[in-house]
Design a protein around this nucleic acid. Structure first.
Lengths: 353, 353
DNA sequence: GCCTGTAGTTAGAGCGCTCTAACGTTTCGG
DNA sequence: CCGAAACGTTAGAGCGCTCTAACTACAGGC
């Protein structure tokens, strides 16, 4: 582009570079300031000149330069989003929610993925700060709290999915305890007592769900039935958990999986072992990912409103950008979606019959 | 931020605003130009001064301002990506591929979703152009070719998933005919003749797959068995197609679904109708989305390397940005992933037994 | 008639950086 | 020992815009 500008300065009839505000002003016979006022849709510009400027602008194919605008006005209508991995639908959907609202309010989205590494996350963060984004949304950040706090000092920040103490930022958190409570209430309401849990290891939400499960079992006086099979949020974990459960003398009557992938693995593994769901054992997942609602799967699971979480995060960020509000924590209440993988335990079903 | 600057100009000991290159230069006792050279890692700067500048910069917490840099250098290391919807994993994964490579080469990603509306897409495009992105990647754009051509005149452009004639841009296309061919060859190789197709309507790839199917059936002298059930790339379409097929006097022995969602719907619908897969009928999907490999589903399907497509698109774009290459079309060859929803037709299986 | 207001417009000083051209120093071949 | 070349550094002119303050013109109040 820039290399193409090779002409005698005086020859001004055909300009090869992109037209600037100056060009529009000259052509319309007004000042640059007036053009600026028109482009920013400010009041107190006579209708006649507005028309004239707009006409010339579109005739020349003028496009305001966002860089120059940001530099002069000291604000970019741009927010940065840092997330783990776009290929994970959970994050992609949150980003989708952010994008949706950003478009509505005329903000641009600068996106960076952390690729599951704190190092990459920090690089992404640095890049966003260099771009002087108006604010940053971090989804399930992995970097140390200290780094996050430092970032919060440089730009308005909203953190999604992780509680970070002592940081000047708003956050959007999921009430994992509540979600887990819904699962247990549902299963216990159906008559289940032997409810096992395949956990999610150290991944986001994993520990919270496990401890909420243990607490819940105790609360319902079912501590003796509590059983945690270690997992890691993958389908494979579900498959091997199924194998392990089948090997035991007694199958639980219900299994609470740390997420839907694990639940899918369980479904597959149990199916191959000849265990029928939900007749022999009920299964509940977590996340309500797209596969959960498939007729073929029809998984009872806990739904988290991901798009809304994204929107909410941006809402908080926008407030923070212009109101500079106090740190706020918004707790998202998940809900239970009951489908076909849960039913009363067999014994009870038999008793009724 | 800017509102906070309210102090006597002379008081310079503690600066409240973000430090600039000027501040670093003053503090390090060198010129602004020298600081610029150091920040851009140019050669021909004495080691001693480089150290000094770097020290001062990190002490002051200096961060180059990307806006100012872009404005002065007339280039933003930023590429724009326009896609339909982040919540669609297909697009999200392509975006993931773009992001991955962008990070590696030090580019930033400005993301905008078109939300399935040409109008929104145009707005997104305008915003990207105002940001003077170095180039734009459009994934399955819906806007008219004329608008795309106009955009191509303003910035380097790469189009993914749609063939647009007469536009100065590179493109990444999927060889739908080849993918469909793989499906038919596989099924026919197993001994199938009555192969039906549930199509994808007008969505991206839909018409191509359908016509490739029809052509392929003719080519294999199976035109009399060709049967297209209208669909639209959704699970519901699969469910109702299953209902329709079951209603017919004779079930086909195999079904080629326009995508995996349709295949999932078919699976569910046939299951409920008591039709067993693959014993009674074989099913092949298209896309290899995450659910396809689940043990519970284990769908034979056509895989498209989405991450690679994203990377390739950015590769082409980067070439175009600095080499200004001729329009190039890269045809992506999909591959067949054979899992458990396909088997020889029943008649044949019986004959063998 | 003078002063105050208000609407419409503009000059001009930045915003924080890059980049060209030129400058002062040192090195080195002849 | 001199001039050229190489190296390291800097002044200063932009990049394309916003924004403050000021200026003009005209209306209305006293």
């Amino acid at each position: 582009m820039s290399a193409r500008v090779r002409r005698i300065p005086a020859s001004d009839s055909v300009i090869r570079r992109a037209p600037t505000m100056e060009d529009v002003a000259r052509e319309a016979g007004v000042s640059r300031a007036l053009v600026s006022l028109v482009m920013r849709e400010r009041p107190n510009v006579s209708e006649e000149r507005r028309r004239r400027v707009l006409d010339v602008a579109s005739r020349l194919g003028y496009r305001p330069n966002a860089m120059a605008r940001s530099l002069a006005s000291r604000r970019t209508k741009t927010v940065g989003v840092i997330l783990d991995d776009l290929r994970n639908p959970f994050f992609a959907e949150i980003a989708g929610g952010v994008e949706e609202l950003a478009f509505e309010v005329g903000y641009q989205l600068l996106l960076a993925a952390g690729g599951r590494q704190a190092r990459r996350e920090r690089a992404a963060m640095a890049a966003l700060l260099e771009h002087r984004v108006s604010g940053i949304i971090m989804v399930s950040p992995r970097m140390p709290a200290g780094v996050i706090a430092a970032a919060a000092a440089e730009a308005p920040l909203v953190i999604v999915g992780r509680a970070v103490r002592g940081v000047d930022a708003d956050s959007v958190l999921i009430n994992e305890a509540h979600g887990t409570g819904l699962v247990l209430d549902h299963l216990i309401g159906l008559g289940h007592e032997a409810i096992a849990h395949v956990d999610g290891g150290t991944g986001a939400g994993g520990p919270q769900r496990r401890s909420a499960y243990l607490r819940g079992m105790r609360g319902h006086r079912l501590a003796r039935h509590a059983l945690v099979i270690p997992g890691d949020f993958t389908e494979e974990a579900g498959v091997s958990a199924a194998a392990e459960l089948v090997r035991r003398p007694q199958l639980p009557t219900a299994i609470f999986a740390a997420n839907d992938m694990v639940a899918a693995g369980l479904l597959g593994g149990l199916d191959r072992a000849g265990v029928e769901v939900p007749r022999d054992v009920s299964i509940v997942g977590y996340d309500n990912i797209s596969i959960a609602h498939l007729a073929h799967v029809s998984l009872t699971t806990v739904d988290q409103p991901r798009t809304e979480m994204g929107r909410l995060a941006l809402e908080l960020l926008l407030d923070r950008i212009d109101n500079r509000r106090a740190n706020e924590v918004r707790l998202i209440e998940p809900s239970l979606v009951i489908r076909s993988t849960t039913a009363p335990p067999r014994t009870l079903a038999a008793a009724v019959a």
